[in-house]
Amino acid sequence: MSDFQGIANRWQQSVPAGMVVMLALWVTFVSFDVKDPQPYLFPRLISVAMLGLSLMAFARALGGRNRTGRGLHSRTLRNIWPGLAVMAVYVFLAAEWLGFYTAGAAAFMAIYTLYDPNPHNTPGIWIKRLLITIGFMSVMYCIFALILRVQTPRGLLV
């Protein structure tokens, strides 16, 4: 998919591997630091396996032997951040505040517009974007509201 193919370097491998070690340590700590062990019998089993494997992955990353994953490049991050921002606003804010369908349409239109290679100064392009958004959301409304009868949250609008 991406034009930026390669292999993550040692530093890029070590940071996430270290974060997974921290997660495994936390899971292990929570699983063993309880008064009643009964509900944590299975999590204890997993946490030990998770800790062992994460330490192995971390050691391999530090040794430069973890040659998997393409890593992250600054250009990739520059390209994805607007999409991530739209996604975060849509999911965590707009969906409930504006209404599910309105927010969905706005998010669809925003991502389509932000990443559409066509020029933004042509009215025809904007009309096409609007029509595609309305068409897509109409299909979503038919499937989820009319056929499946899913009650979606209503905000300021639908």
Binding site: F100, G104, F108
Partner: peptide
Amino acid sequence: APILAAGILVLAVF
């Protein structure tokens, strides 16, 4: 890709 990405996102949320 932009239409597909936007469509999958909205579909995933629904």
